[in-house]
């Protein structure tokens, strides 16, 4: 009798636990905070437009969480308390959002543009990461590039693509975004420019230009940095899936996902003084070495280029298309790390 009751209790316990898990699993979540001070960073993903398959989506979510929790979140804002003589601490990234923490992305046009503007206006230095599909269209006298919002809340009044020219007015005259990483096809095709004569009313084009206006000049910020302190990384032609093997070392250890996480980990690694030890170029080199390219980024499949197969459609013939990662601007710049204010 006792054994039976104990067994019932154990089963009841197990059952309630399982039911509770099933009840909460689909909860989607955006995770982050905005304290209105310090640096800013946002991580965005499109799991819409063309939906990434479930396998890829798992890697994207994994990468976003790793970058959020292990790279950005630990950075600390230290303020020296004169009265009591100790350091008070808070987040150095006072504005930090991960729109892919939960089951599905919460990246919308509104969230992206509001976040860009808030980062520009209320924070010292800002970074931005987006992983997802591109927008690509010739209009208003030049080629335009964009990235899509997630695919579940597209309303008739809201455009699903965040175009380069839409970013421009939100960064105009402020230039707070010093580092932007767009893991998107074609957003690294060109530097971009203002559209002056013969199209004076037309908007500017190109992601590097639209995020920073004319502050970036180098089209190879890795080999020939322009020392502007602004840097944008994206892809010329295709950007690879994060779940794909980079072709070196042990396959399950060297996926593009690993490279991306290593990059952010090193870009925000503390130096001996509490700042960021490595430049963007250093982080590119170290992430490449960690994925078994001993000579660094210049030897890697990302910098040297790769071929991606396209089966045809969207105005392009079937075939292998060459693509590569492009670093615009200043590879010697640092992502902002810890902040120290005051002190003995």
């Amino acid at each position: 009798m006792v054994k039976t009751r104990m067994a019932i209790c154990a089963l009841l316990l197990l059952f309630s636990f399982v039911v509770s898990l099933l009840a909460v699993a689909p909860v989607q979540a955006t995770y982050g905070w905005d304290w209105g001070f310090g640096h800013a960073s946002e991580i965005h993903v499109s799991d819409g437009g063309y939906l990434p398959n479930d396998y890829e989506l798992a890697y994207v979510q994994w990468a976003c969480n790793d970058i959020f929790y292990y790279a950005f979140a630990p950075k600390t804002y230290y303020i020296w308390d004169e009265e009591y003589g100790y350091w008070e601490a808070g987040p150095a990234y006072g504005h930090l959002w991960n729109y892919m923490e939960g089951y599905r992305s919460q990246t919308t046009v509104g969230n992206v543009l509001n976040g860009v503007y808030d980062s520009e206006v209320n924070h010292d230095e800002s970074t931005f990461l987006y992983i997802g599909h591109m927008g690509y269209q010739y209009m208003y006298g030049s080629q335009h590039y964009g990235f899509v919002q997630h695919g579940y809340n597209i309303s008739t009044t809201e455009l699903p693509i965040i175009w380069d020219m839409a970013i421009y007015p939100y960064t105009y005259g402020i230039d707070g975004h010093h580092f932007v990483f767009l893991w998107v096809c074609r957003n690294g095709d060109e530097l971009g420019h203002a559209n002056t004569w013969p199209n004076p009313p037309n908007p500017p084009n190109g992601m590097p230009y639209c995020w920073t206006q004319d502050l970036i000049s180098s089209t190879d910020g890795f080999a020939s940095p322009d020392y502007s302190s602004y840097c944008l990384i994206s892809f010329e032609q295709a950007s690879p899936m994060l779940c794909s093997w980079m072709g070196t070392g042990q396959p399950d250890e060297n996926l593009y996902k690993h490279w991306l996480c290593f990059f952010y980990y090193f870009a925000l690694y503390d130096d001996a003084y509490g700042g960021s030890m490595y430049t963007v170029n250093d982080a590119l080199d170290l992430a490449s070495m960690y994925t078994d390219f001993p000579y660094g980024f210049s030897q890697s499949i990302l910098y040297q280029g790769n071929n991606t197969y396209w089966p045809g459609g969207d105005g392009q013939n079937p075939g292998w298309y060459w693509s590569r990662m492009r670093v615009y601007g200043d590879g010697t710049s640092h992502l902002p790390g810890n902040i120290f204010e005051g002190g003995p």
């Binding site: 499109s46 437009g49 063309y50 990434p52 398959n53 396998y55 890829e56 543009l113 509001n114 503007y117 808030d118 992983i131 997802g132 599909h133 591109m134 927008g135 690509y136 269209q137 209009m139 208003y140 964009g146 899509v148 455009l159 699903p160 693509i161 175009w163 020219m165 839409a166 421009y168 007015p169 939100y170 105009y172 005259g173 893991w183 998107v184 096809c185 009313p201 037309n202 908007p203 295709a238 950007s239 690879p240 899936m241 779940c243 794909s244 991606t308 197969y309 396209w310 969207d314 693509s323």
Partner: peptide, 27 residues
């Protein structure tokens, strides 16, 4: 798997922001 983050459908051309809008974002 091999593949990339290809094109998204873009059958709608957005209105271009005007120069005045560029300096006065509604945010």
């Amino acid at each position: 798997n091999l593949g990339g983050y290809g094109a998204a459908p873009s059958d709608q051309i957005p209105a271009a922001p005007s120069p005045t809008e560029q300096s006065q974002p509604q945010l």
